[in-house]
């Protein structure tokens, strides 16, 4: 239990640092800014209670907000993503359910499962985030293009991280 707790605390700190110090300073093409910090919500244990999930999502989002001058924007998107997580997990559950003691990772449930699961969550997060940021429908297609482009980049980083950092 303490192991899981300490692991997640270290993970949230590392992800926030990585996001604000490196990814937020990435500027190619003017459109791309991957939001890799969403990995934290994706990797939380299956048993995480709902209230804790939402609270963690809010804290994570507001922390990112403080460092990128966007009060509430990332917080609302991350809470939305945390809200969808149990539904998505239910939808993709294997027939015999999730085995206790396992985590939502490629190592336990395979690449296909992990890809679908994280793709839907990241897409939802980015969709919410980018449309909230523009807050108008006049540039619908341009915003949609940004959502898709950034989802691809974030997803790429998330899947890649599973092979490099969390091999086990």
């Amino acid at each position: 239990m303490t192991k899981i707790l300490s692991r997640n605390i270290i993970r949230i700190i590392l992800l926030v640092f990585f996001q604000i110090f490196i990814l937020n300073n990435l500027q190619f093409g003017g459109y791309v800014n991957p939001y890799f910090y969403t990995l934290f919500i994706i990797l939380l244990p299956f048993e995480t209670p709902g209230w804790l999930l939402l609270t963690l999502g809010f804290i994570l989002g507001i922390t990112i907000d403080i460092f990128s001058n966007t009060p509430g924007l990332h917080a609302s998107a991350t809470v939305f993503m945390a809200f969808l997580r149990p539904l998505v997990l239910d939808y993709f559950a294997p027939r015999e359910g999730y085995v206790p003691g396992t985590f939502p990772r490629i190592y336990y449930y395979g690449l296909g499962w992990f890809f679908q699961y994280s793709a839907i969550l990241i897409l939802a997060h980015h969709f919410f985030l980018f449309y909230m940021e523009v807050f108008r429908l006049s540039d619908f297609l341009l915003t949609f293009y940004r959502v898709i482009l950034n989802t691809i980049f974030t997803l790429f980083l998330v899947v890649l991280s599973q092979y490099f950092i969390y091999r086990r």
């Binding site: 709902g50 939402l54 609270t55 809010f58 009060p71 917080a75 809470v79």
Partner: peptide
């Protein structure tokens, strides 16, 4: 309900 509460707080901020 908790989801709604958090969203209201965050969106008010926005």
């Amino acid at each position: 309900l908790l989801f709604l509460l958090f969203e209201i707080v965050a969106l008010t901020l926005v």
